Computed example of a mutant assay.
Amino acid sequence: MTFPEHGHSYMGCDSNMALINQKAIVGTPSGWNYEVLTACVKPQPFKVVSCESQCVFLAWTKFLTPLHATQCPFATVPIKHLVISQDHPRLIQYRLKYNGTNDTAVVVPPKKKRPAPDLQPGEFRLPPRSYEELIPINEANYKEECL
């Protein structure tokens, strides 16, 4: 993965984000839905998918914490090139410049002896849901707190 020079990205997602009013005072999900819906009209408006059911929010942090290092062993902001390989699944190779040699860091602790999972190669288990109950949002009170 090669990261472009800061400020030189011409990807579609970057130009779409520039259309959204970044200075809007919004604090509720429905407020952000409105801001995104009204940000672009032509050639077609943005499509907003509501996550009312909250079953899409999974506890990834809790699930991945025992599997990966808790702190990244190198500064991530200046990285220009990143290599992750199946040949060395515990290592990340990275470069701080576009040319030069790769540095290497271990990001996954050594595997402990554990029973073999009943998964096929390339499969993984989804973590549990992040929230067992719906998150209550009282939009009237929330708007007052944000102002």
Rank of each mutant, 00 (worst) to 15 (best):
N16I: 14
A18R: 03
A18K: 10
I20E: 01
N21D: 15
N21K: 03
A24M: 02
A24V: 02
G27K: 01
G27Q: 06
T28C: 06
T28F: 04
G31K: 01
G31V: 05
W32H: 05
W32I: 06
N33M: 14
N33C: 13
Y34D: 08
Y34F: 13
E35Q: 06
V36M: 02
L37G: 09
T38H: 02
C40G: 08
V41H: 03
K42C: 12
P43N: 01
P43A: 05
V48I: 10
S50L: 15
S50H: 07
C51K: 10
Q54E: 13
Q54A: 14
C55Y: 13
V56N: 14
K62G: 09
F63W: 01
F63P: 00
F63N: 00
F63Y: 04
L64A: 11
P66L: 09
P66V: 12
L67I: 07
H68W: 11
A69N: 09
C72H: 15
C72Y: 14
F74T: 05
A75Q: 15
T76V: 08
P78D: 13
K80M: 04
K80W: 02
L82S: 02
L82Q: 02
V83L: 10
I84P: 00
Q86R: 06
D87M: 06
D87L: 05
H88Q: 14
H88M: 14
P89S: 10
P89G: 08
L91I: 09
L91W: 14
I92R: 02
Q93G: 01
Q93D: 15
L96Y: 15
N99W: 02
N102I: 01
T104V: 07
A105I: 14
P109M: 05
P110T: 05
K112D: 04
K112T: 07
K112P: 15
